[in-house]
């Protein structure tokens, strides 16, 4: 069996025929070659696969591609604009908030959702807001600093 899905990915309309078992992350990586969205644990724990579904952060390894039918999906590839890093990405670089970088796309997508809901998060709000994202390198400290710095830059419209 296959089902036809139509969704918007990073601003472009996509129609495809998929096997129902296709996960959203598999569709993004294998069909659309958007490999910035990572598969970490593949069990919904680590958040490396976080994308935005109609503006809300979700784990693309724990949903079917068909569940995104009709929705707008944004991946890490659409966060930078015109060759310029998004202020949140720039803050991750400035704060040394990544070492191996595997979790970073998911961290940035979760951070953007968090900041959309709370433009000025304190440290506790950042730590709670990133509860669904695991990093095995940094110890989180610099990630928290980066999210706060990124949020501050976004408030200034940077």
């Amino acid at each position: 069996m296959s089902v036809t899905i139509t969704l918007t990915v990073n601003g472009k309309s996509v129609t495809a025929s998929v096997d129902p078992r296709t996960l959203l992350v598999e569709f993004l990586r294998n069909e659309l070659s958007l490999t910035g969205t990572h598969v970490g644990c593949d069990t919904g724990q680590c958040g490396a696969c976080t994308v935005h579904l109609d503006g809300r952060a979700v784990k693309s390894c724990t949903m079917l591609a068909a569940q995104a039918n009709g929705a707008e999906v944004t991946t890490i590839e659409a966060v930078a604009r015109d060759g310029e890093l998004h202020p949140m990405q720039a803050a991750f670089r400035d704060c040394h908030a990544l070492q191996c970088g595997f979790c970073t796309p998911g961290m940035v997508m979760a951070a953007l959702d968090l900041v959309a809901a709370n433009p000025s998060p304190d440290e506790k709000a950042v730590r709670e807001g990133l509860d669904g994202n695991l990093c095995r390198c940094t110890g989180y400290h610099n990630i928290v600093k980066a999210v706060q710095q990124g949020a501050a830059a976004m408030r200034k419209g940077g």
């Binding site: 919904g44 958040g47 976080t50 579904l53 809300r56 952060a57 979700v58 784990k59 724990t62 949903m63 979760a110 959702d113 968090l114 807001g129 990133l130 509860d131 669904g132 994202n133």
Partner: peptide
């Protein structure tokens, strides 16, 4: 419940 991403779905 769960985490932010889980609560969104």
């Amino acid at each position: 419940i769960g985490d932010r991403q889980v609560r969104n779905m």
